[in-house]
Amino acid sequence: MRVVHYLNQFYAGLGGEEAASLEPRVVAGPVGPGRLLDQLLGELSGGAHRIAATVVCGDDHAAATAGVTERLLELVREQGAELLLAGPAFGSGRYGLACARLAAAGTAAGLPSIAAMHPDNPGLGEAGRAPVVAAGASAREMRPTVARLAAAAVRLAAGEELTGSDGRVSRTVRLGRIVERTGAERAVALVLRRFAGETDVTEIPLGGFDAVDPAAPVDTPAGALVALLTEGALVPAGNPDRLESARATRWLRYDVAGLDTLAGGEWESVDGGFATTAANADPNRLVPLDAARALEREGYLGRLHGEVLVTVGNGTTVATARRFGIEWGARLRKAQVQAAILTAT
């Protein structure tokens, strides 16, 4: 089969973070980890499956550009792909997101596709019906990861369904059902088990919570481009883009270039999770545009970014919030924003 491989700019050898805005492009044959993947594919298939081309895109561009997945799939198709392999993205969020979305789009369009990433990669949730095989946490585990991807590719090319024994990532699925005893009765039963010496009894596994280390302070705010962001659902009055009041599935951006203040009556919060009266009376108290403009005029801040990124944090799942974080990060980096003020409610 004619295989097309997807890589980010770094693994394609086209640069690091400085090249993260690189637009989609095609490179002939295998490159970077694609060379090992091509060699193993050839060995496992008696030369039947080879990498014909590599499609490459910068991480920021791939994570933050509308329509980029469609464009990448178009390039893959133009290379006559019969099988699409994306990654391995290891633990990298933006790269994982791109691999997952491309594999999902390929699968949806009938092109056999596999993405490879670490099971904790936030991109995993975006893979749709595409199979994802497990990668290690970092590139130190390149060889076993690529070997797993190659073996899975041969099985998928033979029309077989990938399973856990192929390294297919099986996410823990937590769904509710009606049980015999009430939550209160089960709580008492757990207490008694603790006294019976069982120290680790729980219905929900503990741990795995993200702890985000803040970035280092900006050395010279006077030279920095600073963005305002909020999860407080501040939108133009009337909510023209219909942002949800809870359980967000998307985020929006609003132009504030040339605005000195966010006038009451022109902006409103549609957040369902807090009392919005004060925020609606003076939207600057939710997104401090007036104060930021004053600091900009005084020269304390270099310049304010022209758009405010907005979503609602009320009841939004961790998986969705992580995805927003990756997309916002990519978008802000692309605009060369150096610091951001994210207001929460």
Partner: peptide, 16 residues
């Protein structure tokens, strides 16, 4: 398929 909790304790037993 997402992480089940936003924040939780370091130790203790949880009822779902």
């Amino acid at each position: 398929t997402g992480p089940p909790l936003v924040a939780g304790p370091r130790k203790g037993s949880l009822v779902s």
